[in-house]
């Protein structure tokens, strides 16, 4: 099969490139377009570090043959901060110490963007479910969940002052009683 010209709308900009058959969306983003925020953690769809939004839905870019998403809209982490200003999810990740090594961060934030776009007031369970395909080896997940819940509050315009973000998954008394 010959290479073909594929077009995508990447972070709002129409882009065209020559793609070998079967080349992944991740390879196109990282190598052809120089968008390296999405990472290759496993190249087999099991870690979530390459997550981008395809037509507003989270997708593992490492598993997608780019010709199968021709003409789709693709959003990457590079497209999130407008004019260098961090959005609510990004600033919440910073403020809540939700990053350590940073390798899973791009995927986590893209999943959070998709979640908050469809549900401005997610529950803790909704957040856990949304990021359940994304591996983080550093944080233990809770700081990331707190950051996403806090981002939702920020996006809803609620004050971020005094939010401790420590809401336990279940009441402590219940858990300790035997």
């Amino acid at each position: 099969m010959p290479s073909q010209i594929v077009s995508l709308v990447v972070n709002g900009e129409p882009r065209e490139f020559i793609a070998r058959p079967g080349v992944t969306l991740l390879a196109v983003l990282r190598e052809a377009l120089g968008l390296t925020a999405a990472k290759r953690g496993c190249a087999q769809g099991s870690c979530g570090t390459c997550t981008v939004l395809v037509d507003d839905r989270p997708a593992p870019a490492c598993l997608i043959a780019v010709e199968t998403v021709a003409d789709c809209s693709v959003r990457t982490l590079e497209g999130v901060a407008v004019g260098g200003n961090l959005d609510e999810v990004q600033s919440s990740f910073v403020d809540n110490f939700a990053t350590q090594c940073g390798f899973c961060t791009a995927g986590m934030i893209m999943v959070a963007e998709a979640l908050l776009d469809r549900d401005p007031d997610p529950s803790e369970e909704d957040v856990a479910e949304a990021i359940s395909g994304n591996v983080c080896r550093c944080t233990g997940y809770r700081p990331i969940m707190i950051a996403i819940l806090d981002a939702a509050r920020r996006r809803r315009g609620e004050s971020v002052e005094g939010i401790e973000g420590t809401a336990p998954a279940r009441p402590a008394e219940e858990a300790v009683s035997r």
């Binding site: 496993c42 087999q44 099991s46 957040v127 856990a128 359940s132 591996v135 809770r142 998954a169 279940r170």
Partner: peptide
């Protein structure tokens, strides 16, 4: 891979 090497996910974490 991470589908076979199991680790607790965000829904499995303790307080």
């Amino acid at each position: 891979d991470f589908a076979e090497y199991l680790m607790p996910g965000p829904a499995d974490i303790p307080v």
